[in-house]
């Protein structure tokens, strides 16, 4: 069985993140405020090569960019 999101190049992880985000947004006001904080991540990473630190990147943005690239290739 192939899922539509899989065919579009999304990973299962991304699928779950999108589904969870929309569930959090559907909550009543006070619950939503507490829950939405869980969706935020502030992880940054950098690639080290030849003993030097590379550019510091935000993990979420890098993941989103990778997902777009993967979607453009039709999810191979």
């Amino acid at each position: 069985m192939t899922f539509a999101w899989k065919a579009a190049g999304l990973t299962y992880n991304r699928y779950l993140a999108v589904a969870s985000r929309v569930v959090r947004r559907s909550l009543k006001e006070e619950k939503r405020l507490a829950a939405e904080r869980r969706g935020v991540s502030e992880i940054r990473f950098a690639k080290w090569s030849n003993g030097k630190q590379g550019e510091l990147k935000n993990l979420e943005q890098a993941n989103a960019a990778a997902a777009v690239e993967s979607a453009a290739q039709g999810g191979q």
Partner: peptide, 15 residues
Amino acid sequence: SEQEIAEAKIELEVL
């Protein structure tokens, strides 16, 4: 983009 549409479709299904 294809990714945006796919994500919107996931959201629609959940909603």
